[in-house]
């Protein structure tokens, strides 16, 4: 199976081509601000290097969020349009899970990847390796960094935090709870090889049209609107004309 894996959830932009568990090519850029400029040229270059054509790709695996709204939209739009136009499989994997996979299987720690979500908040989830499988213990969510650390202090085993402790976040943290350690920063960089492996064995999305990023937050405008209009729960706000 020929897999294209894409992750532009946060600052790093990463693409990998994987065939039957083997990594053929990967590129990660960690200096660019604009994933929209570099993503397609990178995909094109790697596909040419391994001498595939676009039509050879069997499956596209994408880090579906959470992360930067624009970032996860670029990856998800690229992935779903490619799957739709080439009629191939589409698989979404949590962007946090991709980072959690940087920890070796066999470790018994609770693995907590996190991304800075601004204003003292993070996107975070809790994972653990159980019998060779990475299991989600607590679903990915959007919460205050201080709330996350309070919760982790109550976990009855060692916890490893994976992610970039930005200055913004560090200002929120007095000291980590005794059972919590912060992994070296390299472990917080996502690997699209891991992403491809995670997505290779998973069932493909049943339908491509409804595939959207996992934002984990409704927009501020909608939150305010819902407060003023409790109980209104229309699903389809977009219609064809």
């Amino acid at each position: 199976m020929k897999v294209l894996a894409i992750d532009t959830s946060n600052h790093p932009m990463s693409v990998a081509l994987v065939e039957d568990d083997q990594l053929l090519a990967t590129t990660t850029l960690n200096m660019v601000r604009n994933h929209s400029i570099y993503l397609m040229p990178t995909i094109d270059q790697l596909v040419q290097l391994v001498q595939w054509t676009p039509a050879d790709i069997d499956r596209v695996v994408v880090a579906q969020g959470p992360g930067s709204y624009t970032g996860i939209r670029i990856a998800a739009t690229t992935a779903k349009t490619l799957a739709d136009t080439l009629k191939i499989d589409l698989v979404g994997v949590s962007s946090l899970e991709v980072v959690a996979r940087n920890v070796l299987p066999g470790s018994e720690q609770v693995i907590v990847p996190f991304f800075d979500a601004r204003r003292g908040n993070v996107f975070a989830g809790a994972y653990q390796w159980q019998e060779g499988q990475l299991v989600s213990l607590i679903a990915d969510q959007h919460l205050a960094m201080t709330t996350l650390l309070d919760q982790l202090a109550r976990v009855d085993r060692p916890v490893i935090l994976l992610g970039h402790m930005t200055k913004r976040l560090n200002d929120q943290v007095n000291a980590l709870p005794a059972n919590v350690t912060l992994a070296p920063r390299a472990y917080g960089i996502p690997s699209t090889y891991q992403l491809a492996l995670a997505g290779e064995s998973r069932p493909a999305a049943q339908a491509i049209d409804p595939f959207v990023p996992h934002y984990l937050r409704i927009t501020e405008a909608e939150a305010n609107w819902q407060k003023l209009h409790p109980g209104e729960n229309k699903q389809n706000y977009v219609r064809e004309v």
């Binding site: 349009t81 959207v212 927009t219």
Partner: peptide, 20 residues
Amino acid sequence: RFGGVVPEVASRHHIEWITR
């Protein structure tokens, strides 16, 4: 609902509809 176009909401709708 908001009395004008909210950019983030607009972007989210676009991705819901693009392949259809």
